[in-house]
Design a protein around this nucleic acid. Sequence first.
DNA 1: CTGAAGGCTAC
DNA 2: TCTCGTAGCCTTCAG
Length: 703
Amino acid sequence: MTENYLELIDIEDIEFTDEYDNMVDIQVDIDESFCLSNGIISHNSAHSTCLSGFAVTGRKYHGAFPLKGKPLNVRGEGLTKIKGNDEIKNIISAIGLEFGKKYKSTKDLRYGKVVVMSDQDHDGSHIKGLLINIFDNFWPELLNLDFLYEFITPIVKIEKGGRHRYFYQLNDYKKWKSETNISGWFIKYYKGLGTIQPDESKLFFKNISKHLIKFNTKNRADRSNLIDLAFNKKRTDDRKEWLLKYKPNLEIDKFKIKQTYESFINHELIEYSMADNLRSIPSSIDGLKPSQRKILYTLFKKNYKDQIKVSSFAGGISELTSYHHGQVSLEGSIVGMAQNYVGSNNINLLEPKGQFGTRLKGGKDSSASRYIFTKLNPITRNLFIKDDDKILHYLNDDGYNIEPDFYVPIIPNILVNGSDGIGTGWRSDIPKYSPMEITDYLINKINHKRKNLTLIPSYKGFKGEIIWDEENNRFSSLGVFNKVNSTTINITELPIGMWNDKYYDYLDKLVEEKKIKDYVKNCTDIEVNVSIFVSRTDMKNILEEPYKFLNLETYMHMKNMYAFDENYKLKKFETPYDLIDYFYDIRLSYYGKRKKYLIDKINLDKSIIYNRIKFINGVISNKIKIHRMAKDNIVSQLDVLKLMKIDESYDYLLGMPIYSLTKEKMIELKEQYEKKKAELEEIKNTEITKMWLKDLKELKKSL
DNA sequence: CTGAAGGCTAC
DNA sequence: TCTCGTAGCCTTCAG
């Protein structure tokens, strides 16, 4: 994790030059009159970026304080929680702030300015926002006092020969790239502050005034309202509206245009919120979030022969797919995809080899990623067919092809494994359904059956019942209990999402409240078996509303079935049938694409064979003379005969081994040609729905 | 009615 | 090295 800095610097007003020459940083001596007070220094690794800088500026007037992770969103939060938050406590004591004080100047503070230094990425923007939120919430007057700044570090560095240039805006870099022949230029992206080298930190701190951007207030009320829009936990509907108005590519050049809080929220923070949704809410077509898709893509592409350690696998994914986030998070996603205990996955696309967690703790009992292994579950390729790999739209990360925007499985995986995601403005909850039933539903739909199946959520290995609750517009999952005798109840299944540990807590409470006498657990990590002992009189009451009393009921609903459509617009689905209908048209069009791809491929194969036959025939019959001929001469002979070229060359003919220039080989090729011809006819005559049905049949076999 | 908890990808 | 904290939304449940 890269640390984010709340950097405390006391300086006089800084004159910003209108023109910032970012070709080379200009060397300027640090003006000590900028600085006034003591610094606060932390002790961990990323802190060194700042400390390197302090080697130039001196530490007398600068203090740096490292933050860990995301700061608390204090808006609407109780004072007890806020005052108990270590991070907030430290920030307040470092700056010398007091709750409830209305600041007219920064004289009483230990620092006259606060500079936020965070990674130049989406989460970095979020952290800046959360810090702004703290000040606006408690000390809004401070934000009118030229108090808050951000420290800007480059996003990209380009180098050639002795020359180098830093880019601070992606648009500037893109513009340069489009206008320049980039060959010979070494291009380095700064992902996180950790990329910055110590001598570079020194350079940036030497020119500190060039790197500080002040946050300005245009209008105090507007500012506070906008910050409230972003961080008030109750204003999710306003945030939906805000995000629906999002327009991409509105990067503001902070060096040329005065940075305001308003523009920060509307042009920078909003990018985080959009990205937050993109990573948290799945695609309606493959049911995957980007990190999961990267995992799958890597498995498909690398074709590991054996199981691979989860921690090294995560490294491989980062490398291959330009995953720019933390390893721990990615490892968590791998583990999640391989889990197969009741309530986790209906089809675990990855196989768990080692302890990946159990229903006892809802998967939280998985072992560390360096101890556990995984591999592709073979059935995954029955869902995500290999022939489709060629027709997907692959994303591009700065010139490298990475995973596709979405896969197109043969059944809507989003319904198979469901999804939970929490974004900004929206969350997405999609229950799980039986892959077998979805497959049958699709087969019926393809065959235009009038009456189709009714789909009810389904969880692999679940022994209880799932029933529709008309009154509450939701499904109930019910555990399984048994009255053994007049004082004993035996429980053999817990409802979906009720993990054993959580259930024992509940029973402990019942014992404490004397609602039951005692209980005995005989559970394994797979089988539920709990005996509950009660009095005869209590038994009667319990059996009146057993599921409620025994806490054996959980719910699942279809109120938040949001997923991204094929254009990555957020789409709401009311029922699983909606999702299938949407999926159906897209999948069918992809069968069309697959068919076209296969026809083109077989056609090419056929032409190659045909031309080889013609070539061999020519050589044998001496129509083509190759003995003692220069290559150019052979090529012109082939030109005359109008043989096919591949990539502007005849290499696929001229590269044939000598021993294939025989009659026997020609006969063999003729057989192959006939085979290809038949194959082509067959595929041309196969309706795409038939192709689909064939895949579905294969899937059913492996289910 | 309010507050807390849980789920999950990220810091 | 491991454990723990934070965001974001929505439903459910406890107080």
